[in-house]
């Protein structure tokens, strides 16, 4: 089937890209000034621990063998030991990755849904005051500096008004309490997540709105919109059943392209709100020269973006019958 073949091809492509990133990172790591061994092995480690780690990571081997070790270690999940935590890197990643995925997917889905909805309406009322004002608002949202708006939100909503916790993802007291059920815990996470979510939402909703607006304006010039009107359909039906489904397509494509951008914002948000995600971990590791952790975090972040890209492609193919059939 055409559809399956296409998705299959995309997956192969994405895997190739990931392999390129994997290799590029290896090359950069070895090309950069500095000794790879001292970067992967913490100075304070005992001699036998250190030699075991070195042989595990293949750091005593010639470069090409090191590369094979590196690829093998990626697939077996062996990324060495974090300097700061003193634990295998993969454990830290395993704990952080779900938190990032939770925040990232929720924010992308919510802001895309809201942006598309408003973009659709605003394009319909093109040239009216509502269009002008919402577009200006979207432009402003789109260009706001994320860390600043995050700090501002903390200052206003957490510090002054006190509606939300200052940072973090959970309240330890709630989780220590043995009687706390799943709902209590989920509500606690939700409470912590609202402000970071709001930050990401404000930043992203504007760009999705602008994309949907221009896509919708393009679609409204199409002949089939005229057909729909000539058929005597109500304006609402023309908008929602004929214009919008076609206008979604370019928006889905640009959501795919903007995922890397969203991850940047996610990492900044995680850092400001001390959200224990993988982006914050990367920034933290880089600041502390914790190379094993930093490299692994980066690989997994790229992986998240690539997987999300494939999901977006599937969505596109689903929405466009020209690909499905």
């Amino acid at each position: 089937m055409h559809f399956r073949k296409l998705i299959f091809r995309r997956i192969i492509e994405v895997m190739a890209i990931f392999f390129l990133i994997l290799t590029g990172l290896f090359l950069l790591f070895h090309l950069s000034p500095g000794d790879p061994v001292s970067r992967m092995v913490q100075p304070g480690m005992s001699a036998e621990d250190a030699s075991m780690l070195i042989s595990q990571l293949g750091l005593d081997q010639p470069l090409w063998l090191q590369y094979l070790y590196y690829v093998k270690n990626f697939f077996t999940g062996n990324f060495g030991i974090s300097f700061h935590y003193g634990q295998p890197v993969i454990h830290i990643i395993g704990r952080r990755l779900p938190n990032t995925i939770l925040l990232f997917t929720t924010s992308v889905i919510l802001s895309a849904a809201a942006g598309v909805f408003w973009g659709k309406l605003v394009a319909w009322y093109k040239g009216r005051p509502i269009d002008t004002w919402v577009t200006i608002l979207a432009l402003v949202c789109h260009t706001l500096f994320l860390p600043w708006i995050a700090l501002l939100f903390i200052w206003i909503f957490a510090y002054h008004v006190g509606w939300f916790p200052l940072n973090g993802m959970i309240t330890p007291e709630v989780w220590i309490n043995p009687s706390a059920g799943f709902l209590t815990k989920a509500a606690d996470i939700g409470h912590h997540m609202l402000l970071p979510l709001l930050t990401l939402f404000i930043i992203h909703v504007g760009s999705y709105l602008l994309i949907m607006r221009s896509s919708m304006l393009e679609t409204l010039k199409e002949d089939y919109i005229l057909t729909a009107r000539a058929k005597g359909l109500s304006e609402k039906r023309v908008r929602n059943r004929h214009a919008a489904p076609n206008a979604y397509l370019p928006v889905v494509t640009s959501i795919g392209l903007s995922l890397a951008f969203s991850i940047n914002g996610g990492a900044l948000t995680e850092t400001v709100f001390s959200w224990p995600g993988i982006g914050r971990e990367l920034i933290f590791a880089v600041s502390n020269n914790d190379y094993p952790l930093a490299l692994a975090c980066f690989l997994f972040i790229s992986l998240v973006v690539l997987v999300a890209n494939v999901i977006v492609d599937v969505l596109y193919a689903y929405l466009d019958p020209r690909i499905r059939y």
Partner: peptide
């Protein structure tokens, strides 16, 4: 393809990583 690869990498984080590698 090279452009595709760079496009899926979050630019801020890459630059950050490079900055830490190159001092």
């Amino acid at each position: 393809r090279f452009a595709d690869m760079i496009m899926v990498m979050p630019s801020l984080l890459v630059v950050l990583l490079l900055a830490s590698l190159f001092g």
